[in-house]
Design a protein around this nucleic acid. Structure first.
Lengths: 205, 205
DNA sequence: GTCTATAAAGAGATAGAC
DNA sequence: GTCTATCTCTTTATAGAC
């Protein structure tokens, strides 16, 4: 209890094997959630993958759902961040739209596992529903951008803005289903491909 | 045991409430699987939704996974069917590609819940893995079609065929996330929109 | 920070009555 | 074709030792 005793152990005492911090636990947990599905993943299998017991895992996180919450925040927070960047705030609506699409592709690639998890959430709990609502708000902002671009005449107006936006993000979001960071095709090239198809289509000119 | 006894009861004897057949049970089950996720759906909650007990539900289907299997077959079988239709077999590669895209959109709309379920499967069991493998085979056939269209010069060749195909189907598959059969926009108009963006892009001309 | 052990609830599935 | 009751296994989570 004396002041001198406090300094004896600076590094926390350890007995068991790995010694994870919260970030490492989160990364592996998200990976397992993606492989097996969040609901199908038991805390036991999660602990097994970490080489820990359930109890040790509960030392790092309060609950299985707390892990999900942190992971979803990482994903949706980053996407929301794109809308707040200067490039998404100035210029023509089409320039801003392009900026947001590129930004979204980059976030998808940089935070691939977190965004993958976000896109699979179906609203089974308050935490999932909150994440879904923030996704919908993001969609609404982009839809407004598409609508403005249609009015300024830079985006074709024979489609509903909401349909166009959903098709766009269908394309963007599908990236999590197949893109793997091989190094060959980076986020920038991928964003170029997405923008190429989205703006000019696949037809030869 | 006599022959005459066999004819006494033609209509099956009933006691309890609803009296479902397999197709009705399947439809509602798929709906619940989509709302809650297959893994998160318990047989008890499924039975509750049907106004039945678990035991009554087990009378209709051998297991929870048997329900999934039938539902997945409905979806992937229909998609495979598109590739076998005459329109997917003759004409230029671009014509065949357009036919397959249109057909896929129509299947998505007609079998919306079944395809939704298919697209969410992650390979947690042999049945899910078999469905995934058939999806991959479907993708490979379409990718070959895109590659042929690139060679014949009707589809731009500055994207890898596999990337183009995945972006295309990212757009098509996203339909299950937002399209609801309101009657206003039918499958044909939706397919037109998809083809418009896919072939010509969003840019004004 | 990790362990063993266990609690308490819920899962999928079955038996047998009506 | 549906019910009640039950089996067995797995689930999330906790208690307490080291």
């Amino acid at each position: 209890m004396s002041v001198s005793e406090e300094a004896i152990e600076v590094v926390p005492a350890r007995r068991g094997r790995p010694g994870y911090d919260q970030q490492q636990v989160l990364e592996i947990a998200v990976q397992v959630f993606i492989e097996q599905g969040y609901d199908a993943t038991s805390v036991a299998s999660l602990a097994g993958r970490l080489g820990l017991t359930k109890s040790a895992l509960y030392h790092h996180f309060e609950s299985k759902e707390a892990l999900l919450e942190v992971a979803l925040e990482e994903a949706i927070g980053s996407l929301e961040g794109v809308l707040r960047e200067p490039g998404a705030q100035s210029g023509s609506a089409r320039e801003r739209l392009e900026y947001v699409l590129r930004g979204a592709v980059c976030v998808l690639v940089e935070k691939l596992p977190y965004v993958t998890l976000l896109l699979r959430v179906r609203g089974n709990s308050d935490i999932e529903r909150a994440a879904l609502e923030r996704r919908r708000a993001f969609d609404r902002e982009v839809t407004a951008l598409v609508r403005t671009a249609q009015i300024e005449g830079t985006v074709r107006a024979d489609l509903e803005a909401s349909v166009a936006t959903r098709l766009l993000f269908g394309m963007v979001n599908s990236i999590v289903e197949w893109y793997r960071p091989t190094g060959a095709e980076g986020a920038a090239e991928l964003a170029d491909d997405v923008l190429a198809v989205a703006l000019d289509g696949l037809r030869t000119r």
